[in-house]
Design a protein around this nucleic acid. Structure first.
Lengths: 171, 171
DNA sequence: AAGTTTGTTCAGTTGAAACTGAACGCATTT
DNA sequence: AAATGCGTTCAGTTTCAACTGAACAAACTT
C-alpha cells in the first residue's frame, strides 16, 4: 500500500532552533533577490559550531550537491561564508562569516544603493527625454509631467541624505 | 511568410518618458514583493495628467482586464491610487496618489517594519527553543549557538533604533 | 424584462527561475 | 596509469507565481 511519499520537510534531524533559523534566513535571502536555498545554507552554517562540508550541508537541507555548489559560491562572492581547510581532509569545509553587522550593512548597501543609483540615472533620462519631446506634448501636459518628475527627483535627494546616516548607525 | 509575431514590447504608442517610468516602477514593485504589473500601472497613472480607465490602462500596458482589476485593487488597498468618478461616465477612472513621499514612507514601513517584527518574533522563539532543548546539546555547542543568536538580537535592536530616524527625515 | 456595459472571480496556462542528475575535469591515491 | 574522491557545469525537470480567457454578477439602458 505504501504510497510514494514526497518528503514534506527535509528528513530533518535538525533541532527546532536550527529549523527556524534556516527558514528565517531563507525568506530573508528571497527578499534580497537571492535564491531561498542560499539563505538556508547561510543559516545552517551560522549556527553550526563546526565548519561543514558539501555532504553535511546537502543532507541537512536535502539539497543536491549542485545546489550546494552554486549556493556556496554565491555566498563566498558576497563574503558571507568562507572556505576552511581542514588538515588531512580533501573536502571543502565552510563556515559563516560571524560579523553579521558587516554583512547586514553590505546587504543593505548592495540593495539600496544600487537601487538609488539606478533610479537616479533613470530619472535623469526621463527628464531629458521629456524635454527632448516637448513639442509632442500639449503645453499643460508637458508642465504636469515635468512637475511630477521633479517631485521624484526631490525624494531621491532626500533618500540620498538618509543613507550615510544609516551607515553610521549600523557601522 | 508572415511569422506569428510575439509582440515584444507593448504596441507602445507611449513616449520614451512614460516607458522609462513604467519600467522603473515595475522593477521597484518587484523589489517590494509586488507583481511587476502593479508597479507599471502606478507608473502609468503617475505621469498621466488625466485619470485613466480600465481599457486605457489595459491597452497601454497590454494587460488583460483581469490583471488591471487585481492590480488596481492592490494599489487602492495600499493607498497608491484612487478612484475618480467622472460625470456621465459608467467606467471607473483611476488616478495616482501624488504625495509620493507619503507613499515611499508607507512602502518602506510596510516592508521593513514587517520584516523587523517577524524576525524579532522568530529570534525570541529560537532563543526559547534553544534553551528548552539545552540538554540535547553539548555544553560548548549550546554556548556557541546562544552567543550567536544573541548577536542577532543586538543587531535587531540597532536596526530598531534606525527606523524612526528614517521616518523623521522622510516625513 | 431582455440586452448592454463594466468590473470581479476563478480555473487553467505560461514563463522564468531554482533545483536536479548525470557527465565531466582535476587532483590525489593505489 | 588506472581508480577513486570531490567539486563544477549543464541540459532537462520541477515549481510557483503572474497572467489570461471565460464565465459570472451587478448596474444601467432600452
Amino acid at each position: 500500500m505504501a504510497k510514494p511519499v514526497s518528503v514534506p520537510p527535509p528528513p530533518s534531524t535538525l533541532a527546532r532552533t536550527e529549523n527556524d533559523m534556516i527558514e528565517a534566513c531563507g525568506r530573508f535571502a528571497q527578499s534580497l533577490g537571492l535564491a531561498r536555498s542560499v539563505g538556508e545554507i547561510y543559516g545552517l552554517l551560522y549556527l553550526s559550531p563546526e565548519p561543514m562540508n558539501f555532504e553535511d550541508i546537502a543532507a541537512a537541507l536535502s539539497l543536491s550537491k549542485a545546489s550546494v555548489s552554486t549556493g556556496t559560491r554565491q555566498l563566498m562572492a558576497l563574503g558571507c561564508i568562507r572556505k576552511v581547510w581542514m588538515r588531512e581532509e580533501r573536502k571543502d569545509y565552510f563556515e559563516a562569516e560571524q560579523e553579521i553587522s558587516t554583512l547586514v550593512r553590505r546587504a543593505y548597501e548592495r540593495v539600496l544603493k544600487e537601487r538609488l543609483k539606478n533610479s537616479g540615472e533613470h530619472l535623469a533620462e526621463m527628464v531629458a527625454s521629456l524635454e527632448a519631446d516637448k513639442s509632442k506634448y500639449g503645453d499643460e501636459e508637458f508642465r504636469v509631467k515635468l512637475h511630477r518628475l521633479k517631485q521624484l527627483v526631490k525624494i531621491q535627494s532626500r533618500l540620498r541624505k538618509v543613507l550615510p546616516l544609516v551607515d553610521k548607525i549600523l557601522g
